[in-house]
Amino acid sequence: MTTSIPATSIPPTLGVLLAGGLARRMGGGDKPMRTIGGRTILERVIARLSPQCGGMILNANGDPARFAAFGLQVIADDVPGFPGPLAGILAALDWTAANRPEIEWVLSAAGDCPFLPRDLVARLHEAREQENAQLAVAASGDQTHPVIGLWRVALRNELRHALVVEDIRRIDRWTARYPLATVTWPTEPLDPFFNANTVEDITEAERLAALDEVSQ
């Protein structure tokens, strides 16, 4: 499905790829560095999102040098204890405020979703504007994907308070406080939010990658 919003009306949006997970179900390591069809998952994600965003950064903890080949600014969580993706989103909002003050919106996406929609940013902004919402998240089928969404940079101090003072870790607990738009994508011919969490998922991703090439 294509968006009805003219490209010029989409607000400048910075993309952040969240790659700070511990990948326990894959035996550790960086899930986005796994290879599908001869390309890393992260390479596929960047290819999907970079045309939609006015710049991209990567949220990851540990040695940033392991991502040097991708040419993205790497930012780490500044909330200790691996509190989850909200910490990565907060780090991205803070980085954007300090380094790209002209940008009011950040699009977050999981770094292990190789088939993200090519109209992700446009449709999320369209729904947010139509519903006068403060935030927008993606869904497919009957499942919401709260880690994939639009975040207003101006909410960063409220998010920090929720994380540090209230110890809120679940994204949907925080987003429930604000008017939220949810945009649903079809799951055929494939779910665009399929993510590679396990070794078995990599095998399935290989099959879907071939299907994705045919459907384009």
Rank of each mutant, 00 (worst) to 15 (best):
P179F: 13
G84R: 14
A87R: 04
S140C: 14
L93N: 02
L124G: 08
A154E: 11
V164M: 08
P85Y: 08
P179N: 12
L120Y: 00
A110P: 08
D167R: 12
D167V: 05
E166K: 10
A76N: 10
G141L: 12
V147I: 09
L116Q: 04
R152P: 11
D119C: 15
A138D: 00
S140G: 06
A181N: 10
E102K: 02
L90R: 00
T187F: 04
G111W: 12
T96E: 03
P83H: 04
G71D: 14
L93M: 01
Y178A: 07
A76E: 04
V74C: 13
P192C: 02
A181K: 09
V74S: 09
F115T: 15
D77H: 06
W174T: 11
Q73L: 11
T96G: 01
F67Y: 15
V121E: 11
Q73R: 11
N59H: 15
W95V: 02
A91L: 00
R156L: 00
N61D: 14
A69V: 14
I168Q: 06
T175I: 11
R128W: 09
R100Y: 07
E166I: 09
R100P: 05
D142H: 03
V106D: 00
D77W: 00
A91W: 03
A122S: 12
V147T: 04
Q130T: 14
G62N: 11
G62L: 11
A92R: 01
A92G: 03
P64N: 08
R177P: 15
Q130P: 01
L124E: 05
R156H: 04
L107A: 13
E104T: 02
D63S: 08
L107S: 05
E102Q: 08
W105V: 11
R123I: 07
D172T: 09
E188C: 06
I103L: 04
P114Q: 03
D77E: 02
P64L: 03
